[in-house]
């Protein structure tokens, strides 16, 4: 059974339809990348899966259970964690408190404070600092660590490399295999198509709220990806 099955998903912002019947699935232990231009519906897809935007009951199924229409906190407690775009750390909490709040309503599993500090050693010496005083890269590490602390079966990462230096991005993506090794399936939204194709087992390209391309990255020619990306 696939952890996540999304079938014929439509999403709206008021009268504006952002997703037109998306089919999307994530298999156990798989890393899936979602690419697409701005406004293609990538973030909307994640927002709908986590319940921040309402979804029809049957269109999102997580581990065999329909979760559409559940409130975000109930969905998250089932084992989906999200690294939100722009990191959204809690400014009045320290780094360690940010990590702990991730664990508070999470599931049992391999991740704890010690292992997060082993994954991102830079965080340990700054554990008592207010989280928003960290550098962008360290903030992103905290956000990922916070999501992992809930021991998710499915980790959703929205634009983790946004606004970060290439070296820092490489450091963050170096952690991905370790995360994968613990058994969680990962969905990554990525602006950088090259980066996405390097790490993903499977790739979705969205265009104006529809899936334009889907499959294993190595089977695509650059021309095909660019056609799906830009639609021209």
């Amino acid at each position: 059974m696939n952890p996540l099955e999304v079938h014929d998903l439509h999403a709206y912002y008021g009268d504006f339809r952002a997703l037109h019947g998306i089919d999307f699935r994530v298999a156990a232990g798989e890393t899936v990348a979602v690419i697409g231009a701005n406004g293609a519906g990538k973030s909307t897809l994640l927002r709908t899966i986590t319940g921040l935007l309402p979804a029809p009951a049957g269109s999102v199924v997580f581990q065999g259970r329909p979760i559409g229409g559940l409130p975000p906190h109930a969905i998250v407690r089932l084992g989906i964690a999200m690294v939100p775009e722009g990191r959204c750390l809690f400014p009045s909490l320290s780094v360690e408190e940010n990590l702990l709040i991730g664990a508070q309503f999470g599931c049992r599993g391999p991740w704890n404070l010690a292992r997060i500090y082993r994954l991102f050693p830079a965080l340990e010496e700054k554990r008592a600092m207010p989280a928003t005083l960290l550098s962008g890269g360290q903030q992103q590490m905290t956000a990922i660590g916070r999501a992992l602390m809930s021991n998710p079966r499915l980790l959703l990462c929205d634009e983790v490399s946004l606004g970060l230096a290439p070296l820092v991005v490489r450091e963050i993506y170096a952690a991905m295999p370790l995360i994968k090794a613990e058994g969680a399936a990962v969905v990554v939204i990525e602006q950088d198509t090259g980066q996405a194709m390097r790490i993903a087992d499977r790739l979705y390209c969205l265009q104006e709220g529809r899936v334009a391309l889907e499959g294993a990255p190595r089977t695509f020619t650059p021309e095909r990806v660019s056609l799906a990306y830009f639609g021209v």
């Binding site: 912002y13 008021g14 009268d15 504006f16 952002a18 406004g39 973030s43 909307t44 775009e85």
Partner: peptide, 8 residues
């Protein structure tokens, strides 16, 4: 107020 206040 427009729906654009929600981040898409």
């Amino acid at each position: 107020p427009c729906a654009g206040t929600l981040k898409a």
